[in-house]
Design a protein around this nucleic acid. Sequence first.
DNA 1: CTGAAAGCGCTAACAG
DNA 2: CTGTTAGCGCTTTCAG
Lengths: 338, 338
Amino acid sequence: MVTIKEVAKEANVAISTVSRVLNNSGYTSEKTREKVLQAVKKLDYKGSLLAAAMTKKQTLTLGLIIPDIKNIFYSDLTRAVEDEASKHGFNIFLCNTDNNLQKEAEYINLLIAKGVDGIIFSSPEIEAENIKDAKEKYPDLPIVVLGSKIFNLHVHEVLVDNFDGGYKATSHLIDLGHKDIAFISGGKESYASVERHKGYEYALNENGISINDEYVVFDKFYMESGYKNALKLLQKNRRPTAIFAGSDSIAVGVYRAANELNINIPEQLSVVGFDDSQYAEILSPMLTTIHTPIKEMGQRAIEIIVKLIKEKQLYKESLVFYPTFMERKSTAEPYSTG
Amino acid sequence: MVTIKEVAKEANVAISTVSRVLNNSGYTSEKTREKVLQAVKKLDYKGSLLAAAMTKKQTLTLGLIIPDIKNIFYSDLTRAVEDEASKHGFNIFLCNTDNNLQKEAEYINLLIAKGVDGIIFSSPEIEAENIKDAKEKYPDLPIVVLGSKIFNLHVHEVLVDNFDGGYKATSHLIDLGHKDIAFISGGKESYASVERHKGYEYALNENGISINDEYVVFDKFYMESGYKNALKLLQKNRRPTAIFAGSDSIAVGVYRAANELNINIPEQLSVVGFDDSQYAEILSPMLTTIHTPIKEMGQRAIEIIVKLIKEKQLYKESLVFYPTFMERKSTAEPYSTG
DNA sequence: CTGAAAGCGCTAACAG
DNA sequence: CTGTTAGCGCTTTCAG
């Protein structure tokens, strides 16, 4: 690997001069500039960002902490984040935690030891001990929370209005005439789940529909959870005529359960998802869902963190995106009235 | 950020001593060892892997270059790679290239400038100019190609026997009685496509079934390509009774096309996919496909590269996994005979 | 406008 | 067994 020293020698200048022309810092005469550039080209000098990072205290890398890249929501998100980071010259360290706090803590330590310029957290949990710890130990480390909310903590955040999404999904079902609407979502420790549920209840209340606790399930944001819980719900004496799934993944499980029980979607069961992931259009019938602007959210998260890296910000930035209703083919009027 | 110097001061020893106990290198008396460890704990010293990397010439990071993390195949693969890397203490820089060679080249430069200890390439293309260049410029840089094959190049590789997969898929359809079997896959520049096609032709020939060029389509490994091409194939005068899709994504497109044309799977059209991705079980009916041991492949790729980092290897390692047939619900006897 | 020199935080000989 | 010292490759004052 050719170093700046060799370039300096080749060009007959000091290494500081080489550094200057390469970084466009300070003055350099056109002549020496040329000489240096020639030497650089001749030796095919690339430079070490590692060494540069030592002095500049900037590695041009970011950490992205998510539960699982296999989860479609996070792969979409990660792509958006990586693309935008790349535009700004940053690379991404990908970290899968499976929502394991210990694993997360280890990743955080490692990322910091490697000198990342910032960390983007995208876990669904409200309990954010690790983030709090990190913020305490490294108050100057830029942190952005993407897709969730941490209470009582001065961290920048980019999220979607989950309440609004829950409200829109449920309202749509109510408008179609449904009254027996079930809700299956992730756990109560998930901010998204809780908020979506609030939106669900609000819509129900607003329309004078009484809330049936048996129809509300907090479990996991996985397909299996959708399957298992839908199976139970759909075998009740009075089964729901519609299910609002807290994520498209859960909706996939609901489809499978319905399929197994020979219940047709949407004729006999309406389903609404959340996220508008790739799954939505693969399912048959295509899934009506709540569209989350993942791409924009990922972009904004990077923009904020890049801004943070450049200059300390004294206020907390909080971006709340509005989800939109995406109608496809999985909902219809309730069976009995249809 | 607390440095090794401060720890040394606190413990009243030289920094080299601190370094020694922390790295378990050289001898240290139990007493000073204790002193150092105490100081470390007291100051909550973490150490900078960045600085360590400067002297050790090892960053404990790897680059992973893929086309697109949103593609289910690559997200599964990436998870396997990241997990295994993490076990060995390595972090992963995620790079999405969209198969754009220029983008890929830029990522490679960046990765090298940041001092990655190795790069894992997982692009489907046979043309590997960038890999060749990298190998030429940095002959000592550990490189593993995952999922594809580069000809005439001394790079380690982990891949699946695509020919065998193509053969198995096609044979299954033939065994069911199909003769009009179409093949839709990625482009001819993809090693996987070409090999899967060879397996397809071999099975056909072996059974004395003549090859119909109209039934063979090389396009892209995307859903859209499956949709578009299946639409064409299924509207021919003599439409195929079965389609072997070169990937599960393509199969998703085939399902959609069939659905639009009111062609039932598997009664009127049999479909076999490739990869056994998450899609396979989401599709209805569940997709019969060729299972690729993605997880194992990702693990092996990391094992090889870690070995390579530790010691120079004089032989080329090539791991070929056998795919297995995964029967689900998307195939049946051909319509006419059924 | 350019060069010398200090230093980023750590490791690795090398004396002692 | 421990301390001193010389870097790793680069950036950044500071003189000149």
